[in-house]
Nucleic acid binder design. Structure first.
Lengths: 154, 154
DNA sequence: CTAATAGTTGAGTAAAATACTCAGTTATAT
DNA sequence: ATATAACTGAGTATTTTACTCAACTATTAG
């Protein structure tokens, strides 16, 4: 099953973008600090997110990334599909050649499951996550920690 | 996400048991041949399946494994839970200490997803899989191949 | 009784996937 | 000019997974 830290990081980073959409382009360095994801790793992920037209980039000082469209038009499934190959619970990658070129005993079960997961995550937009109370409070906590760190630097 | 070949093999092997329940105890060697799963690996898996009271074992010649109860009383989720630690889409394993001891931004999303998957697989019994036409036809194909191989041995 | 069968256990290993780093390049604002 | 920050590709360390091996125990058939 293709749902790993990579996909989770990507969704987290995209949600961070959605939460700070009003601040103009957000740099990966900022996301890296807030979400504790390695900058280099984020660069890799955003390369794919950009290829899949989920974000736009702005280069140079003050630059960063923006969502390519409204947070209500971006869905979790799209993000995971962008960084992983796909959400797929089968062993054969959906090809159906699991046993000597033919389908194995449980092939259709895993197909059904993949479909189920995909539908679930296709129904969840970034906007709907932003609205959630738990997300709001975690985000506020992160903002507070962010300011605190900045004070120490002065 | 904890859904790998291990869990898939376990479900496949259990389904094999369910399909051949009328033949008395089924040896791992038989399952190994039919489902093309390494015997040593099956031994590992069945150790856990036995610990979780999903199968009973019969030692000695003519021995093997049997489902511990009716195929309508064993569900896919139970099998996967038995061999993997659990079906869990979070990074923290559900602990909620994903970011500096507190929950990360997307923690609840992954919790919801885990719940979703678990419910789906909890609703699918081995009996319901046995009834499926696709499973029947794959099983018949396997039986045919089995007989063919035995002929060659004589 | 003894030989063969088949489950039981634990330790160990090879391969693959994952997560992550590094070193550079390019574009742009100030 | 210079600093910033996106972009790219190659490379590596770690972890997980899948699998093997070797020994042991219980049971049954002959």
């Amino acid at each position: 099953m293709r749902l790993t830290t990579k996909g989770r990081y990507a969704v987290t980073a995209m949600l961070d973008l959605a939460l700070h959409a009003d601040r103009g382009p957000i740099s990966l360095a900022d996301i890296s600090k807030r979400q504790e994801i390695s900058l280099s790793y984020l660069e890799q992920l955003f390369s794919k997110l950009r290829q899949n037209a989920l974000v736009n980039s702005v280069r140079g000082p003050g630059g960063g990334y923006r969502l390519s469209r409204g947070a209500d038009q971006i869905f979790v499934a799209q993000i995971i599909d962008a960084v992983n190959e796909s959400i797929d619970a089968t062993n054969c990658g959906g090809a159906g050649n699991c046993q000597k070129g033919q389908v194995c005993l449980t092939h259709y079960l895993w197909c059904d499951l993949s479909e189920q997961i995909h539908q679930f995550l296709s129904g969840i937009s970034l906007a709907s996550l932003v609205e959630r109370q738990e997300v709001k409070s975690v985000s506020e906590r992160q903002e507070a920690q962010d300011k605190e760190q900045n004070l120490h630097l002065i």
